[in-house]
């Protein structure tokens, strides 16, 4: 995807335009730009999209850039108990319980393991809202302030949410929190404001190892389609039948 190099860069473009196009025409086109953008927006048809995300656990290096970028992009409070996405570290010793942690969601990196910790296997797992097709949070919202959009993203209506927190209780993945400033439920939107403009979600944009794959299930050309085709896929807590749209490749049995 990142090989889609633009045909012409801005300097070249301005160069060419200034040579070939009369100045007055440039003015006219500049005034028309606003309309052009609007036209493009209204071209967006949510029915044509079906967003989902893939997570390649073997690619995740636990750098926490996703969680950091998410907070930047979505103005998520910087405190340690509000996350739209976070990274968990799993350390599975030869015997005994798995050790899991996610200090500050992984944003500041992970501390050294306790001296002498034996590791059988270990890995990182990025977590976020699963945008369930059968979302329990949507089911329980008493007023219709959280809903599944036509393009398959679970969103929160900030100006309609009453702040009863039933959705937070109903989410099996701990993906929701009550925003301390708006006093409404808040969570990952797949960066709805970006994806509807053709950009990637911030976490996917900054993931340096391609551990997060964003796309559309229904689109043959989507990188997600390829991810789903060539991996053994699991979802989190499948027993709850929430039908998540965040798919994991390489998720260990200990991941929950």
């Amino acid at each position: 995807m990142k090989n889609n190099k633009p045909q012409m860069n801005r300097r070249e473009f301005i160069d060419t335009v200034s040579r070939k196009v009369p100045t007055w025409l440039a003015f006219v086109s500049a005034f028309g730009a606003g309309e052009l953008i609007l036209a493009k927006d209204s071209d967006y048809n949510p029915e044509d999209h079906d967003y989902a995300m893939g997570i390649e656990i073997h690619n995740c290096i636990g750098c926490g850039r996703c969680a950091d970028a998410c907070k930047n992009e979505n103005k998520v409070p910087r405190e340690h108990s509000y996350f739209r996405t976070w990274v968990e570290r799993y350390v599975i010793p030869p015997e005994g319980e798995a050790i899991v942690d996610s200090p500050n969601g992984g944003i500041d990196g992970f501390p050294k393991l306790k001296e002498g910790t034996e590791i059988l296997r270990s890995f990182f797992v990025p977590k976020l809202c699963n945008h369930c097709a059968e979302a329990p949070c949507v089911q329980v919202c008493p007023v219709g302030a959280t809903f599944t959009s036509r393009d398959g993203v679970v969103l929160v209506d900030e100006s309609y949410c009453v702040g009863c927190r039933y959705c937070i209780q109903a989410c099996p993945y701990g993906a929701r929190y009550l925003h301390p400033e708006t006093h409404t439920a808040d969570k990952c939107t797949f960066c709805y404001h970006r994806i509807t403009k053709g950009l990637l979600p911030a976490c996917v944009e900054v993931c340096p190892t391609g551990a997060r794959i964003f796309g559309e299930k229904g689109r043959r050309s989507s990188p997600l389609r390829r991810f789903l085709r060539f991996n053994d896929i699991t979802v989190l807590k499948p027993g709850l039948n929430t039908q998540p749209k965040v798919y994991y490749a390489g998720a260990d049995m200990e991941v929950r």
Partner: peptide
Amino acid sequence: EVASQEIAY
């Protein structure tokens, strides 16, 4: 309204 959020990246 959700889609109109400001883009940072």
